[in-house]
């Protein structure tokens, strides 16, 4: 055991991680799934969606940003945190216009998969049906449907950090906050390419490639049979 090893607890089970790891990364490594939406492997942590909220020594922290420390007691799979995460997913569903029944991303959507995993039959909050969300289909290979955007900023981070471009950015504050593109001529005026990571990392059906929708039949999609996080839990030691 190297001196970099840190021992702590998740839900009463002793686990070990490497100094500098976040709680989420350490949990992933030992096969404990902490639900997440804005976090994406390969992108720096962002900590905005709060789905990965855990309790560390009794205080709420986002597992994707909080580093592990010797002896900390992390709560993850508890009724209280499940309720909190369920409420967050409920709010995301009512805040946008999420029509799963015709969405191309259905079955491969991480927001939907979280709702499945949490057993949500219907959101508890009233639907807002916002009217100010538009669709930008100006690009020949890609379109953005702002109705489905959950403001996770994965596209912003991936474009900047992985693609070496700067296609997306947040504009506005509070309820007006939205993703904008770095061009007055909409998406077609940017240097985005269909092979960019910024396109691939969208967890929902907000940024989609054209002409490939519905190619995977129902029953063979990512979350048709196994809940989200099953791949991580398969590594359980």
């Amino acid at each position: 055991m190297s001196e970099n090893t840190i021992t702590f607890e998740i839900d009463g089970v002793e686990v070990q991680g490497i100094a500098g790891q976040t709680i989420m990364a350490a949990a992933d490594a030992v096969g404990i799934y902490i639900p997440r939406l804005c976090a994406f492997e390969g992108l720096p942590p962002f900590g905005s969606c709060r789905i990965c909220t855990v309790k560390v020594n009794g205080r709420f922290q986002s597992a994707c940003t909080q580093p592990i420390a010797e002896g900390i007691m992390v709560e993850n799979d508890t009724e209280e945190l499940l309720e909190l995460r369920r409420n967050l997913v409920d709010m995301l569903f009512v805040e946008g216009n999420h029509f799963c029944m015709f969405c191309e991303k259905s079955g491969n959507c991480e927001l939907q998969a979280l709702a499945y995993r949490f057993g949500i039959a219907a959101p508890k909050y009233p639907y807002m049906f916002p009217a100010d969300r538009n669709v930008d289909a100006t690009h020949k290979d890609i379109f953005i449907d702002h109705n489905r955007c959950v403001l996770c900023a994965r596209c912003i981070r991936a474009s900047h950090d992985l693609d070496g471009k700067n296609v997306f950015q947040f504009v506005g504050r509070g309820p007006q906050k939205r993703i904008a593109v770095n061009s007055t001529a909409k998406l077609v005026g940017t240097d985005i390419d269909v092979t960019d990571q910024a396109v691939a990392v969208c967890p929902v059906g907000a940024i989609l490639k054209k002409r490939v929708g519905y190619t995977i039949p129902v029953g063979q999609r990512k979350y048709d049979h196994e809940p989200i996080g099953s791949d991580i839990e398969a590594n359980k030691q």
């Binding site: 216009n97 029509f99 029944m101 959101p123 639907y127 049906f129 009217a131």
Partner: peptide, 13 residues
């Protein structure tokens, strides 16, 4: 029944 479905697409218009 749960969220209005396809008919609710008119809710933004």
């Amino acid at each position: 029944a749960i969220n209005g479905g396809l008919p609710a697409m008119r809710n933004t218009i």
